[in-house]
Design a protein around this nucleic acid. Structure first.
Lengths: 227, 227
DNA sequence: TGTACATCAGTGAACGCGCGTTCACTGATGTAC
DNA sequence: TGTACATCAGTGAACGCGCGTTCACTGATGTAC
């Protein structure tokens, strides 16, 4: 069996369901094992929505019906996967933005971090980049929620950085939204391209983002002048 | 049976396979009938990649194996669907851009035309907006091809319009690409929202696009000054 | 400490279903003469 | 015009398969006393 488990191991009781240390046997299979199995099956030609319950159970080494002890159905697993991926990404890219110093390197540095996550072994980003528009309502809502979190954090950072440079920002919410959607859309197509193209994609994206920021800045000044 | 057939009827021999008027019986079922059946089945909760061959055949009123007379498999039908949708969209939005006169109304007018197509009964746009990132390689390539066509036409129009106003455009290819991806990404999420939100979406998108254009313009001038 | 008991995570077999694909066919259409 | 024939679009039945879900179960673990 493939041993690339990214989120396995007993997990230090950070669970929200505390019933596995009450009376009764301790679970030997946990939700994280199934999530890890699903991630192992995902690839350029397999998306979450095409995984079957039996496949995931097989990969995790359990009987098909044991699946139900952890999740109601595949949809619930998919939502858990999305939440995990979104949290991980926001933490990492957020850190990259906070570490950055000058304006230009923030954009490029964050994009490079993003691409790094995209090529990472854990494949967590794959789930968010593909399939935001297919799958169940619950799944789509989960992806949208993570995108909104991402947007909001980006917006706050834009305002913070602009303020530090003494600039008033024009419609930071819209800019954050545009950047987020652009990066995720372009990233989704990057998954099918060879990694050699990543550098060019980062160039293109940072160029696009700088155009957006520049435009927002220019319109902000015009707005200020009008008022 | 639902009678919303958007692309049905005998079709005026515009087919590329001319063998249906040689010896033998004329086909009573044509590819277009199957495409129309697939479109009828697509909706907010059904995407092309979840349609089964038997479902489409059932909807078209033929036996499952009769499907094979028209398409090799569902994938081939999906690619045909994408090409049809892409051509239709480019024709319509391209016309909207050519009809427009002033700079601002081009953006807004094209976006409104786009949203109109998105809400149209024929559901052709649905296929392009969802699923660009799932499905077979052939399918993904077909979507990408249509996106590239769209980008290229937009790029040519940007240059044309800028030239008419005596402006040199900074990186029109990148701008066209950013606009295309943004519109398609945002459009994809709009499919799940009530049509009442369409106006706000058009506002947001036209704002984003104007920021991009403004930024491109500003960077173009800077570039020219540098050189 | 030792024993009887309760809990419940994981099992193995079975179900009915819709699927893609195959096969040999049928019968309406168009052609040859 | 009439007749024999070839073509081939569409058929109906059948196949084997993997699926999600159910059921009654087993046996290791932890608890009560």
């Amino acid at each position: 069996m493939n041993r690339l488990l990214p989120v396995s191991s007993p997990a230090p009781a950070s669970d929200d369901t505390p019933n596995h240390d009450g009376p009764g046997r301790k679970p030997t299979i946990v939700r994280e094992d199934l999530i890890a199995a699903a991630l192992r099956l995902i690839g350029p030609h397999r998306s979450v929505s095409t995984l079957s319950l039996r496949e995931v159970a097989r990969e995790a080494g359990i009987a098909p019906n044991s699946f139900y002890r952890q999740f109601h159905d595949m949809d619930e697993l998919a939502v858990a996967l999305i939440d995990l991926a979104g949290e991980s990404l926001r933490r990492i890219v957020g850190d990259a933005r906070k570490r950055a110093v000058s304006g230009r390197s923030i954009v490029r540095g964050s994009l490079e971090t993003f691409m790094e996550r995209l090529r990472a072994d854990d494949k967590l980003l794959h789930v968010m980049l593909r399939e935001g528009t297919v799958g169940s309502d619950a799944f789509k809502r989960a992806v949208d929620r993570q995108l909104l979190f991402f947007e909001e954090e980006l917006r706050a950072d834009l305002v913070r950085i602009a303020a530090a440079q003494g600039i008033a920002f024009h419609e930071p919410g819209l800019v954050a939204r545009a950047i987020t959607r652009l990066v995720f859309a372009m990233g989704g197509t990057a998954l099918d391209l060879p990694p050699e193209r990543d550098a060019a994609l980062v160039d293109d994206l940072s160029h696009m983002i700088r155009m957006l920021l520049r435009g927002a800045h220019a319109m902000g000044r015009k707005h200020a002048r009008d008022a």
